[in-house]
Amino acid sequence: MSVNWAALGEVFIVGLVSVAAVVALFATGIRGVSQRVAARAQGGSGAAGLTLALVCFTACSAVVLYGLFLIVAR
């Protein structure tokens, strides 16, 4: 039995980058929600924070769903 170390390394790097991207998107979405709450408390609309949160959470969901698609499709 032989291990393809190059393929294993590639999967590790892609997984690491994907996890970092999902975490960064989710954290930015949480920050957008926080900005909206702060703006609403000061009497503003908070539309920019809500838009940022929606974009980030949508992108985060798309990355997760694409990963599930890749797993199920095989």
Results as ranks from 00 to 15, higher is better:
25 L>G: 05
18 S>G: 13
71 I>C: 00
68 L>N: 07
4 N>I: 06
16 L>R: 03
24 A>S: 05
15 G>K: 02
33 V>Q: 03
63 V>W: 00
45 S>C: 06
41 A>M: 14
48 A>P: 05
28 T>K: 09
1 M>G: 13
44 G>T: 02
61 S>F: 06
52 L>T: 12
67 G>D: 00
24 A>F: 08
65 L>N: 08
68 L>K: 06
28 T>Y: 09
60 C>Q: 15
18 S>I: 03
5 W>A: 10
1 M>T: 15
63 V>Q: 01
72 V>P: 02
57 F>K: 07
40 R>D: 02
49 G>Y: 04
3 V>C: 00
69 F>Y: 02
16 L>A: 15
37 V>D: 13
47 A>T: 14
15 G>R: 07
14 V>P: 00
21 A>D: 11
74 R>I: 11
4 N>D: 15
23 V>K: 06
67 G>F: 01
31 R>I: 08
61 S>V: 07
2 S>M: 03
69 F>N: 05
36 R>E: 04
21 A>C: 10
59 A>P: 06
53 A>N: 06
73 A>I: 11
6 A>I: 13
58 T>P: 02
69 F>M: 01
26 F>L: 11
35 Q>W: 10
13 I>K: 13
22 V>I: 15
33 V>H: 01
50 L>E: 14
67 G>K: 01
33 V>T: 04
34 S>K: 09
38 A>M: 06
43 G>N: 07
10 E>R: 04
3 V>R: 12
16 L>K: 01
44 G>C: 03
2 S>N: 10
71 I>H: 04
65 L>Q: 08
15 G>F: 07
27 A>N: 10
16 L>V: 01
73 A>W: 01
13 I>R: 11
32 G>H: 04
6 A>Y: 11
39 A>E: 12
25 L>E: 08
50 L>R: 13
36 R>L: 07
41 A>K: 10
62 A>H: 09
53 A>K: 09
73 A>R: 14
30 I>W: 10
30 I>C: 01
27 A>C: 07
8 L>K: 14
44 G>Y: 04
18 S>L: 12
39 A>W: 05
66 Y>P: 00
17 V>N: 00
65 L>F: 09
26 F>G: 09
2 S>A: 11
44 G>D: 13
6 A>E: 14
60 C>S: 13
58 T>D: 01
34 S>V: 05
70 L>M: 02
62 A>Y: 10
60 C>M: 15
69 F>L: 03
47 A>N: 14
1 M>A: 12
32 G>L: 00
39 A>G: 07
55 V>R: 12
2 S>E: 12
66 Y>W: 02
30 I>T: 10
9 G>S: 11
40 R>Y: 03
19 V>H: 07
47 A>P: 12
43 G>C: 00
47 A>S: 15
57 F>Q: 01
51 T>P: 05
34 S>Y: 04
74 R>M: 11
19 V>L: 04
64 V>K: 06
11 V>L: 13
73 A>C: 03
